[in-house]
């Protein structure tokens, strides 16, 4: 026991042999890779709103699944995919469509979530369902979850890879993409499907309410550092995976520091993402300062006197 503890000061005993930890690490990594890939496009397209909408709707789905005794992932996926289709039909690109989606669809789904969570609490006589759905519980996932996550993860990353160039072109200019013959609505719809899956997987990892954090946070970090879309996706995925793993470790270790009651994993993961965002801001500011110094000596455009 003592030997295991001194093996490393970073890893509390049992971290690597614990089955729930293994599941948590795998699930977290898959969710982070998918969220990073999709999230970069979400930020580029200014659709964080859609991601947040889906996380609210997913709350209803997750709590419904809990009620019928199914794994929450199925509820998240079913509700989010249907919601993504509805959002595409309402026309999420238009401001009016957004307003309607906010008022009607989100309101209705959060209302449903309130009902389902209430019923969950009554039927299971615990408050576990609420915490589980809203904030996630990565250490208590069912054993079959890794297979489901892998299948969904591969599907959504493959979808983004297929759509990559037309999606990027239509993110630059919808009209330009349309003029080039890109089926813009189909591409936009395919992207929303990938977003629905990403939010669902993120919800399993850190809870429905927090799922946007894993989607947007690492992507926001990547946008501060990368000048290319592909590189931004790699950075976002790497930051997300690191945050999930580090958060899991901190939460696991915290059971020892905090005397049995560890911190929630979701809190730890989101905290790590926030630290990354903060640090990336410093890095990008240092970089722009250096660039500004470098360009100061560059020959500028002729002065007004020369033009005259």
């Amino acid at each position: 026991m003592l030997g295991a503890a001194s093996w490393s000061p970073l890893f509390e005993p049992g971290f690597f042999s614990s089955e729930p930890v293994h599941v948590a690490l795998v699930v977290g990594a898959i969710a982070a890779i998918v969220s990073g890939t999709v999230g970069v496009f979400t930020v580029i397209r200014g659709q964080s709103f859609a991601g947040h909408a889906l996380s609210d709707i997913g709350t209803a789905g997750g709590s419904a699944a809990f009620l019928v005794g199914a794994s929450t992932i199925y509820g998240f996926v079913a509700f989010n995919v249907v919601a993504a289709a509805v959002m595409e039909l309402i026309g999420l690109r238009k401001p009016r469509g957004r307003d309607l989606a906010t008022g009607i669809v989100l309101g209705a789904s959060l209302g449903l979530a309130a009902l389902f969570l209430y019923e969950d609490t009554i039927s299971s006589s615990t408050t576990g369902a609420t915490v589980n759905v809203l904030f996630g519980s990565i250490f208590t996932l069912p054993s079959g979850i890794t297979t489901v996550m892998t299948v969904l993860g591969v599907a959504s990353v493959a979808l983004i890879v297929v759509l990559y160039r037309p999606l990027l072109l239509s993110s630059v200019s919808y009209d330009l993409a349309a003029a080039r013959g890109v089926p813009v609505r189909l591409v936009g719809g395919g992207y929303l499907l990938a977003l629905a899956l990403a939010v669902s997987m993120s919800a399993v990892t850190i809870g429905a309410i927090l799922s946007t954090a894993l989607l947007i946070g690492p992507a926001a970090v990547a946008l501060r550092l990368a000048t290319r879309t592909g590189v931004a996706i790699l950075i976002a995925a790497a930051v997300g995976v690191f945050a999930c793993w580090a958060g899991t470790l901190i939460a696991y270790d915290s059971t020892v520091w905090a005397g049995g009651n560890g911190w929630p994993v979701s809190f730890c993961i989101v905290a790590v993402i926030f630290v990354f965002y903060f640090a990336s801001g410093i890095v990008s500011r240092l970089r722009t300062d250096r660039r500004r110094v470098a360009t100061r000596d560059r020959p500028k455009a002729p002065t007004p006197v020369e033009v005259a």
Binding site: L163, R165, L169, V172, T229, V231
Partner: peptide
């Protein structure tokens, strides 16, 4: 076109999209 300054797309990438941006997959 209204591109945010942090959009991770270089000038050369946008010109490349003019060549094959309508094609599916990654170049």
């Amino acid at each position: 076109i209204a591109l945010e300054p942090d959009m991770p797309l270089r000038a050369r990438d946008l010109v490349g999209l003019g060549l094959d941006g309508h094609r599916f997959g990654i170049s």
